[in-house]
């Protein structure tokens, strides 16, 4: 084939030749920005422990990510910031008094076993932070369920409950009811305290206010859509409302369900993890509803060992995300109805 002699050639590539300008790093940076208010709240409520745990988790995650990529001879991905996000999210799911080495062990597990063994970002089936938390709950059960006393428990009149060794708000209710005491009295002030975050719990999950601020930022930046958090929180609310209507004496009021047990953190920051949630809007709704139902099942079934349930609900839904994706493809343009 005779083609003219062309000395200076221009760059040739497949269309499109323009890009919106988004990047994985920018998305991860936005998530970190959105987590900042909750981090500030955790410092305020839990002081130096919050800093200790967050720093440990982030540093360990980064190191583990770097070492794994190096060992596997793959391009290094620490600059995509996803390891930092995992570190922060894991730390947020830990109780304040957890020993540093346990936090480091959990982080190592998150990055190596839950993320890099699958092939790194994009290939993991489970949210690494949540999977690591589940691992830690099983391995370090005692240390993972020790809480600092925020004074909230006394304020709802559940004096029979040991504030430091037992429970977060949902645990308080469970313990109180088990002991035959009356349903704690949730005054407006107690609910407000739940909302701002002055309660027992993991360091990053307590302040609904700070978390919702972050979630609003993510929605505004279009990093997430309303579908997963909306469906998740909505399902929990409806489910809890029905239970409360049927048996007000034996069930926790819906607003308490929403504001405790890491629901807001889970719904806005963990369930929305892109890699492990569906890609279509319909799939996202199903995913959110599924998370909500499983959370409530775990929370309300009498013999349940974990009053929280959020982590396990999301992990279970992570597992069926490929199925949801397969079942929820959009109807292709021009499909005969």
């Amino acid at each position: 084939m005779k083609v003219e002699n062309q000395t200076e050639l221009f760059l040739v590539s497949s269309s499109p030749h323009t890009h919106i300008g988004s990047s994985v790093e920018r998305i991860m940076l936005d998530v970190l920005i959105a987590l900042a208010p909750a981090f500030a709240a955790s410092l305020y409520f839990f002081g130096v422990d919050a800093l200790r745990l967050t720093a440990t988790c982030v540093a360990t995650c980064l190191l583990a990510e770097w070492l794994c990529r190096k060992a596997m001879g793959r391009t290094n991905t620490i600059s995509d910031l996803s390891a930092i996000v995992t570190g922060v999210l894991l730390a947020f799911n830990l109780p304040p008094s957890l020993p540093t080495w346990m936090a480091a062990a959990g982080s190592l597990f998150a990055i190596t076993i839950c993320k890099q063994i699958f092939g790194g970002i994009g290939y993991n089936v489970f949210n690494p932070a949540l999977a690591a938390r589940a691992f830690m709950l099983i391995s370090f059960t005692g240390a993972m369920t020790v809480w600092s006393n925020s004074g909230w428990i006394a304020s709802v009149g559940a004096s029979t409950v040991d504030a430091t060794t037992v429970a977060t708000p949902l645990g308080v209710v469970k313990e109180a009811l088990k002991a035959g005491a009356a349903m704690p009295n949730f005054t407006g002030a107690a609910v407000m305290q739940l909302f701002t975050g002055k309660i027992n719990g993991c360091i990053g999950e307590t302040s609904a206010l700070a978390l919702l601020l972050g979630a609003a930022y993510l929605l505004w930046r279009k990093v997430i859509t309303w579908h997963i958090p909306g469906a998740y929180i909505g399902t929990v609310f409806i489910y809890a409302s029905i239970l409360h209507l049927v048996a007000p004496e034996a069930s926790v009021p819906p607003q308490i369900h929403l504001l405790s047990g890491g629901l807001i953190l889970g719904a806005c920051f963990m369930a929305t993890d892109m890699v492990t949630s569906p890609v279509t809007r319909k799939g996202m709704l199903i995913f959110g509803v599924g998370c909500g139902i499983i959370t409530m099942l775990i929370r309300t079934v009498k013999s349940g060992a974990y009053p929280e349930g959020v982590s396990f609900a999301i992990l279970l839904m992570n597992a069926i995300t490929p199925l949801i994706n397969r079942g929820c493809r959009n109807k292709v343009f021009g499909t005969k109805s």
Binding site: H19, V24, G119, G122, S277, V279, R281, R329, F333
Partner: peptide, 27 residues
């Protein structure tokens, strides 16, 4: 003109929302 290195799909679903033929470009 930016030159990029292709990364792994993070399943963000943005391509799904953008596709005017309602396909799943990621998949």
């Amino acid at each position: 003109v930016s030159q990029y290195t292709s990364q792994a799909c993070i399943s963000c679903g943005r391509c799904v929302d953008a596709c005017p033929m309602r396909l799943i470009p990621s998949e």
